[in-house]
């Protein structure tokens, strides 16, 4: 099972805010866009005034996808 969801705009920021309210653990990603945050199964990036959330649904160890999520956040920030 695999699913990749991309949210652009206010909806992306909303997901980040909800996850923060739920005390999810975030890792700040420096050097990506204006700000970027990584959590298990998702990455959030803010660049050029636009928020983007990328969620990955996989059933194995979330830590395995931290680097791919970080790499994709960097790519997305460069495209914005």
């Amino acid at each position: 099972m695999a699913q990749v969801e991309i949210y652009v705009g206010d909806g992306a920021k909303k997901i980040l805010d909800v996850d923060r309210d739920l005390d999810h653990e975030f890792q700040t990603l420096s050097g990506i866009g204006d700000e970027a945050y990584l959590e298990d199964g998702a990455v959030f990036v803010h660049a050029a005034g636009v928020w983007v959330a990328i969620r990955l649904v996989r059933l194995d160890d979330p830590a395995r996808y931290h680097k791919p999520l970080t790499d994709l956040a960097r790519t997305v920030a460069g495209r914005l």
Binding site: I6, V8, G9, V52, L56, Y65, P68, L72
Partner: peptide, 18 residues
């Protein structure tokens, strides 16, 4: 939105991630 989510993250990007 001015940004197309599917263009921002292409199928190749998503497959590489997943």
């Amino acid at each position: 939105p001015a940004v197309d989510a599917c263009a921002l993250v292409t199928k190749a990007d998503a497959e590489k991630l997943a």
